[in-house]
């Protein structure tokens, strides 16, 4: 294989350039305090605050003036926002405000779960592939094969196979992201492997699993964390696209993607149905991306934007 593609990590939706791998986590000086840290990292501050608010919505969805998000009432369907229904009602009379608030749960869950699952599997495979030469070839060919199938098509195909459930949505999206994580981890392991302290550990007789766990794993976590935030952001968008295509979460689940997919046909006459979940989704994805950018700047000083 050529050296060129590995010079640059892969990009899925929102999985953006982290051109060079940072070496280790920078020192965190406690004395500067949280406020000082946030002041120096405004993106983390803004993104993190928004995310915390959303997390609050997700956890306390039932206490925020909501009603049962699944209660239908065909006789008062597709009503515009009013004092009774803050965001209006959808095509079968469900309260949109409640659905959007409960939808925070689903979208955050999908985003975080995909990031966790994809990073976990990708990390495991990537570490092994990077360290064991005989595994590397076959595994990476399979990864190349998986990666050459456009992620959304792969996810749609996987969803067509399985029964619609949020768990399956998570798995379908995550599988498409695994090869990208795997390549990132592998390339970072490959460069770490040549570093003197790893070589030293190996020569000193440490077993391979031990070297991986003690030395390599911690050093891969930094780029992986950055990558995971981007996966999280892109997963939320992909969830919406799957719903759009008709291969997403089960429709009784009030996910933002589902609300948009159900309301999208009416965007000309009832724009509010699609607008509220779309804006919520954008803000969330924006927050996660900001957080990701902030983390990257923090963990990879070379491409940081310090004036």
């Amino acid at each position: 294989m050529s050296a060129a593609p590995d010079r640059f990590p892969d990009s899925a939706v929102g999985v953006i350039a982290a051109p060079e791998m940072p070496d280790i986590l920078p020192e965190f000086t406690p004395r500067a305090g949280v406020i000082g840290f946030l002041r120096r990292n405004p993106r983390i501050a803004v993104g993190g605050t928004i995310l915390l608010l959303l997390l609050f919505c997700a956890v306390f969805a039932g206490y925020l003036g909501t009603v049962d998000p699944a209660a239908i009432a065909p006789s008062r369907r597709a009503r515009p926002p009013s004092s009774e229904h803050w965001f209006g009602t959808d095509m079968i009379g469900r309260d949109l405000y409640s659905r959007v608030v409960y939808g925070t749960r689903v979208s955050l869950f999908v985003g975080f779960a995909v990031a966790l699952v994809a990073s976990g599997i990708g990390l495991a495979i990537g570490l092994v592939a990077g360290f064991l030469k005989w595994v590397d070839g076959p595994v990476m060919r399979v990864m190349d094969g998986l990666m050459s199938i456009p992620p959304i098509l792969l996810a749609v195909a996987l969803m067509a196979l399985t029964r619609g459930s949020v768990g399956n949505v998570v798995i379908a999206i995550a599988i498409a992201d695994v090869p990208r994580v795997c390549r990132l981890v592998r390339s970072s392991v490959l460069s770490l492997r040549e570093l003197p302290f790893i070589e030293g550990a190996v020569t000193a007789g440490s077993s391979t699993p031990r070297v991986i766990l003690r030395h390599v794993l911690p050093n891969t976590l930094a780029p992986l964390t950055v990558q995971a935030t981007y996966i999280c952001a892109s997963a939320m968008i992909t969830e919406a696209i799957l719903s759009f295509i008709g291969a997403g979460s089960p429709p009784d689940v009030p996910s933002w993607g589902n609300i948009m997919a159900e309301g999208r046909m009416l965007w000309q006459v009832k724009p509010f149905i699609i607008a509220f979940p779309a804006v919520s989704l954008s803000i969330t994805v924006l927050a996660v991306n900001l957080l990701g950018d902030g983390l990257r700047d923090l963990l990879d000083p070379r491409s940081a934007t310090k004036a």
């Binding site: 060129a4 010079r7 640059f8 892969d10 899925a12 939706v13 050459s148 456009p150 749609v156 696209i241």
Partner: peptide, 24 residues
């Protein structure tokens, strides 16, 4: 230009996925 060209190529998967929706 190397990373830029790479991103154009790798982003192709992204474009194909997006085309599914755009074409609809």
């Amino acid at each position: 230009s190397v990373p830029v060209v790479t991103s154009i190529g790798l982003g192709l998967a992204l474009l194909i996925g997006g085309a599914v929706v755009t074409e609809s």
